[in-house]
Design a protein around this nucleic acid. Sequence first.
DNA 1: CGAGACTGGAACGGTAGCGTAACGATTTCG
DNA 2: CGAAATCGTTACGCTACCGTTCCAGTCTCG
Lengths: 114, 114
Amino acid sequence: MPLDLSASQALGLWHGVTLAQVRREDHDLTLRQTAILLQIYLVPPPHTVRGLAATLGVTKPVITRALDTMGEMGLVDRVRDDRDRRNVIIKRTVTGALYLEKLGDLVIEHGRKL
Amino acid sequence: MPLDLSASQALGLWHGVTLAQVRREDHDLTLRQTAILLQIYLVPPPHTVRGLAATLGVTKPVITRALDTMGEMGLVDRVRDDRDRRNVIIKRTVTGALYLEKLGDLVIEHGRKL
DNA sequence: CGAGACTGGAACGGTAGCGTAACGATTTCG
DNA sequence: CGAAATCGTTACGCTACCGTTCCAGTCTCG
């Protein structure tokens, strides 16, 4: 079901959510980190470093570093793949799901204000 | 007029737009820089450094540095206030308006895909 | 006038992400 | 087997943003 937005609605929504994110000041994720996180939680697993790099159009070290940072925040987890021990499977966490749930609420809340 | 979104719609929209932004690779603005830019273009002028800092809940140097960076990109412009020469008025530019127009299109485009 | 308040910006050291180029570990296959 | 390919990670030098502090210019008002 398509969702039709006017130009002013689209930018207004982006404005409200971004502003709220800045003011909240919790975790200041990079645009890339945010994209990675959303990809992990919204697209069916399994997720690998290589796969994410290809999907986002960035190099592998970018993914590794982002996973380091977000791993320390508890937003994601890494597990070796036992079927092919070269791979690393990126796992979701409760903390990460909660974080994205809050982001979703923020979007919904500002959507209502339009 | 309120815009009601489901949780999956809200996150899906954010996901699509963020992903497109990362892949596009043009200018990689910080979350704060994006918030500043949207504030300047969506809220009636005049905009000052101090005012923006208060609105976003950050310190003045953060605004100064962001304006430096975005100024070099041509996204904003700075002009001394002749009525009170302590103030600096932040001006909009054609490049900046174009940039935000593209962002708006991106949001609209991904809104349609939901 | 001159003291004080106000503005935006500069200076400082610290931290985090970047791209490129390697590396060790593992699997594949000739 | 052993050579080659593939995976994720690390190392390196670099750039950009960070928070704190301080500063020069400007206005206000007794």
